[in-house]
Design a protein around this nucleic acid. Structure first.
Lengths: 355, 355
DNA sequence: CTGTTAGCGCCTTCAT
DNA sequence: ATGAAGGCGCTAACAG
């Protein structure tokens, strides 16, 4: 039961030294006669020996584990992201330690430290809070952190890497789309605007309004400062936000939701109020799989997940080998507006692309 | 940079032996004078020392990591499940290593072995394949495996533990519901029926038909043996399946989808065909968050996630301490039918509960 | 109360 | 082509 097969056992059974077995394991098969190699191979197989990752890591200092911190995999966007990261990690023989921060600073911090203590050398940090100063000491010790969905901020630690879409542009694109359709009272539904990307999306919204000469009205922005901050209930929050906006004396005719889950909640609220979508137009963010399949299909802003994941791993490789040469410290990608029926009007402007 | 602070450094700086520091770390603070304790504490803080989990694990053999293998977190059901497991693990000071098997046997197997090699002592295995014989050798060595969403099978290894809902009952419940509404041509949309729970759901469907005296017709079951088997595209598969069923000379008037993602895809297909839901009734499984918020809200079968997660951890605790006493090797929970508008009829039978 | 000792399983010079 | 020795950072006897 407790007697695990170790390298030593293999060596004894194969009548060779531990070194030889180790050499075999580490691809130095050429350093021994074909006969010995065969024997070692056979014994390993017979005993069902698996080298201990723990011991190996303690010895070499190298871990083949990647940390991944996301707000919550209950949101399909983060689920898909986690899946994409894991798929790429698998290809590179790495494991992924998944952590759900629930957008809680303390929890995020605890996780990052825990990961570092576990020997993890690189952490992908999803949608993080405005200030990542708490990372400074741990970055200095050599942890590589790639922030995802969070554009690089002025005061950020030097060695922090960022990958994200241009969230301001994203916010501007959806809002302009709604403005072009003729909407003038456009709501904004979100949880607390306490991440960089959320701030960006809101800023884009305001920017678009300004460019169109529409006055920004605070009461059209629902950001639920009251309750919790997790993504677990994001759809529920979207619903509540929309309910609140609908009770305004002058309710919005269209609404920008902070992400697709909120948008779905908003749609439900609209129906519950006896209205319909796109009678009130709704747009989201992220283009989760369900967005296209919702009824009506959701207008949204897509993030180029695959490319972003590729950049993340290029960065990790890059820093693992030389001294961050090929890849930059900040990658901002273009968000793509996807127009669907949830923001349709009787007369569809010919300028927009439908899918 | 590479110079990490170790316990030894702390000991030197605090002018005590490594043992004392170790004792301090492991809660044996009482084994030293208050003065020493204070000093140690201060030095640890000043140096920013964090004990190496790797070394500790190598030494003690204890890991604070739990393995979690699911088909794909891109499906919100598994996302929610992963979140629930992680939340409970966090409470018990454990980390979770997340792996997406994509329902691929080789991949699942590779992950389990990888986890074992990493020193993981317990693995939660989501929705696994009919035969888990490959686990036998690794179970004998002491790995604890808790299968989730997979009822215990006759030939299963002795020490395997199972938690699941009664999937046959679940399949029967939805199907009977549709039958009660008067439907007689009821389709079944699924990916390959290659897991225990899927087989169970289909068996329940057939059982219900039989009890109602309705003949089972193979062509009403779409199980897409052709293409892939991941959950990534489950909604897409649902859509394709429904499309196929709609082209039958005698298309179904209602359909049972293997899960909510498939159901959502099926709904999209129905709309694309110019029909509507519940004009064709659609029911799913799992009660993902979005089910309630879909348009129309989806009838589905709920699994008691919280209780199941609790059982999982009770089991782990149990086996960790004594010799599996309190908990059993097989826990089958009751699925709950949730009736919503996606299976509504003009006249709603008064016997069903609405939410 | 505190220190000394002996490894956990593996990799890596350095010899042979 | 193979083997012996040392140590990664930590804990757990066992002494003092």
């Amino acid at each position: 039961m407790g007697s695990e097969v170790t390298l030593k056992h293999v060596a004894e059974a194969a009548k060779v030294s531990p070194t030889t077995v180790s050499n075999f394991l580490n691809g130095h098969g050429s350093r021994m006669s074909p006969r010995t190699r065969k024997r070692v191979m056979r014994v390993i197989d017979e005993l069902g020996y698996r080298p201990s990752r723990v011991a190996r890591q303690l010895r070499t200092g190298r871990a083949q584990v990647l940390g991944l911190v996301v707000p919550s995999v209950a949101n399909p966007f983060w689920g898909s992201f986690a899946l994409a990261v894991e798929a790429e990690a698998l290809r590179r023989q790495q494991q992924v330690l998944l952590c759900n921060s629930e957008r809680d600073l303390e929890r995020e911090k605890a996780y990052v430290e825990e990961l570092w203590a576990s020997g993890v050398k690189a952490v992908v940090l999803g949608s993080s809070l405005p200030s990542l100063d708490y990372l400074a000491p741990i970055l200095e010790r050599g942890l590589r952190v790639i922030a995802f969905d969070r554009e690089r901020q002025p005061g950020d630690p030097e060695t922090l890497v960022s990958v994200s879409v241009d969230s301001v542009l994203g916010g501007r694109l959806v809002t302009q789309h709604l403005l072009e359709l003729g909407h003038r009272r456009i709501g904004f539904v979100s949880g607390p605007i306490a991440t960089v990307s959320r701030r960006g999306r809101l800023a884009g919204y305001r920017e678009a309004l300004k460019l169109a000469g529409v006055r920004f009205r605070r009461q059209l922005v629902w950001d639920n400062v009251g309750s919790g901050f997790g993504d677990v209930q994001s759809a529920e929050l979207g619903r509540r936000g929309m309910e609140a906006l609908l009770t305004l004396p002058d309710p919005p005719t269209a609404v920008v939701a902070i992400n697709d889950m909120y948008a779905i909640g908003a749609c439900a609220a609209i129906r519950d109020a006896g209205l319909d979508v796109p009678g009130i137009a709704v747009a989201g963010f992220d283009d989760i799989v369900i967005a296209r399949l919702y009824n009506p299909p959701l207008t949204t802003v897509r993030q180029p997940l695959q490319e972003m994941v590729r950049f993340i791993f290029d960065t990790i490789d890059d820093e693992a080998t030389g001294r961050h040469q090929k890849t930059s410290r900040s990658m901002v990608m273009a968000p793509e507006l996807i127009v669907r029926a949830s923001t349709a009007l009787p007369i569809t402007p010919s300028s927009v692309v439908r899918r």
